[in-house]
Write a protein that binds this DNA or RNA. Structure first.
Length: 476
DNA sequence: ATGTCC
């Protein structure tokens, strides 16, 4: 990135002053090394988002930001409906409500090591993974509608888990305002046999060990100690979210000029929040959020079955479940005023700070768990929302390592088989239906997740709580 | 991310 266009606000905060059609400045949170390594297109996309109607405060990018469809991945932008604000399908992304869920196993590393290969095989056998993978469930029309309204709560009622799971999920497992009637027949059709599947790309299920603690008080509140084994899922709303994104992007491209919105880039297609199309998209997107939450709940059920096969009687309670591709209606204080805003987070994690009423009581004193998936073979992180008087970027943080190169470039550089072998030599067992997928996800195709979370902490977005080291990875 | 283009 060419840094001459930025004004440095602090060591980890770079402002792109408003110019041309920009209504607000752009702000990128990153170390000098991270922002220098970012593509210039990230800056262009941050500026493009800043030009959309009704945007408030600034167009933000997180330390893991990279080029995306319209909005950067790692982008955060909030809009006020009363000021002509918009909602954008590209601002949420195609994998609606993709997110991370971590489970405690109650096991210590020494108990896991002897059974690691067997556990990897059992998980791989029981968790449907890969492009086009299907689950054991086939939803009829009425069940689909109930799932889209009920989210993880629906899945628990169907027997995929326990009511106490719900307290540890963002929105208690079900977002309000879902409108199944705004979801196309095609989207329903694509999803009917994909519940309880991991998908492909960067989606995975990983068994991890707590390697190092950075904040003992928060770790204690989260129930984390060094040597503890966790399981983490990273996946989203599968074909459902993708089809809803496709359907509404198309409609928004047509509708935007008619609503008098000039688009710097067709990929920024959006609709006013106060329009029928904007409201229908919000209803459909919320249905997709519930679909992703139900999907992660069913995957949790399958994970529990797999673990119970190796460790009879084991329980896997939730640490937390948080999404990183959403548009959420939230209240934030801006210049001393309470505002109702629609916050787009695309590859960015909600990170509420201590004291937020939405958090489970046991986490309220330390802030929301912010679950950060690393790249395959590298560390993952548990952060805590910083929040409070220092709330920044509408209480958002990074979401992962962020790609450093394209999938195409990764395929040119690495062979899936050798990636699997090299990781196995380091004690990390990969199971995947796609060696090509493994090559695309090679660890070095991503930024250094440690540098990303350090920048997030230094920028005041979240605090580091625990680093997790991978042991087994089921890769989609 | 994605029945990797109906």
């Amino acid at each position: 990135m060419n840094l001459s266009q930025f004004r440095q606000r602090g060591p980890f905060e770079w402002e792109l002053p408003a110019r041309g059609s920009m209504r607000v400045p752009g702000v990128i949170f990153a170390s000098r090394a991270l922002i220098e390594a970012m593509d210039d297109k990230v800056g262009e996309q941050v500026a493009n988002v800043a030009s959309l109607p009704g945007i408030v405060a600034a167009s933000y990018a997180m330390p893991d930001a990279h080029w995306g469809y319209g909005f950067p991945i790692g982008g955060v932008a909030a809009f006020d409906a009363e000021e002509g604000g918009v909602v954008s399908a590209g601002g949420v992304g195609f994998d609606i409500s993709c997110g991370v869920r971590s489970l405690h196993t109650g096991l210590k590393l020494a108990e896991l090591e002897p059974v690691k290969p067997r556990l990897a095989d059992v998980l791989f056998r029981r968790i449907p993974a890969g492009l086009g993978s299907t689950g054991a469930l086939r939803l009829k029309a009425l069940e689909m509608t109930a799932m889209l309204k009920g989210g993880a709560g629906w899945a628990v009622e169907e027997g995929f888990g326990h009511p106490e799971d719900l307290a540890r999920i963002e929105e208690r497992g079900c977002v309000a305002g879902a409108d199944p009637s705004a979801v196309s027949e095609q989207a329903r059709h694509r999803q009917r046999d994909e519940m309880g599947t991991l998908g492909s790309g960067n989606h995975y299920l990983e068994v991890q060990v707590v390697d190092e603690l950075f904040d003992r008080k928060a770790a204690q509140a989260y129930g984390l100690a060094e040597g503890d084994v966790l399981v983490t899922l990273h996946c989203g709303s599968r074909g459902m979210g993708h089809q809803i994104g496709t359907d509404y992007l198309r409609a928004m491209v047509i509708a935007a000029p008619r609503a008098g919105i000039q688009l710097a880039d067709r990929e920024l297609a959006c609709a006013p929040l106060k329009s029928e199309l904007g409201q229908r998209y919000l209803g459909a997107m919320r249905a997709a959020i519930n679909c992703a939450l139900a999907n992660r709940q069913i995957l949790t059920f399958l994970t529990r079955e797999a673990f119970a096969e190796v460790f009879p009687g084991i329980r896997l309670p939730l640490l937390y479940d948080v999404s990183h591709n959403t548009c959420k209606e939230e209240r934030h204080v801006l210049d001393g005023q309470k505002r109702r805003l629609f916050v787009h987070r695309k590859g960015a994690t909600r990170a509420f700070g201590a004291g937020h009423a939405e958090l489970p009581a046991e986490y309220r004193e330390v802030g929301q768990p912010v679950l950060i998936g690393g790249s395959m073979g590298t560390s993952s992180w548990v952060l805590a929302g910083a929040g409070g008087a220092e709330e920044r970027a509408f209480a958002s943080a990074c979401h992962g390592a962020g790609r450093a190169m394209s999938r195409h470039e990764a395929l040119r550089r690495w062979q899936g088989r050798s990636v699997v072998d090299e990781l196995a030599a380091r004690g990390i067992l990969i199971r995947s239906p796609s060696l090509r997928g493994v090559a695309e996800e090679a660890p070095l195709a991503y930024k250094d997740v440690g540098a990303v979370v350090e920048a997030a902490e230094q920028a005041g977005l979240a605090r580091r709580v625990a680093r997790l080291r991978p042991l087994v990875c089921i890769k989609g």
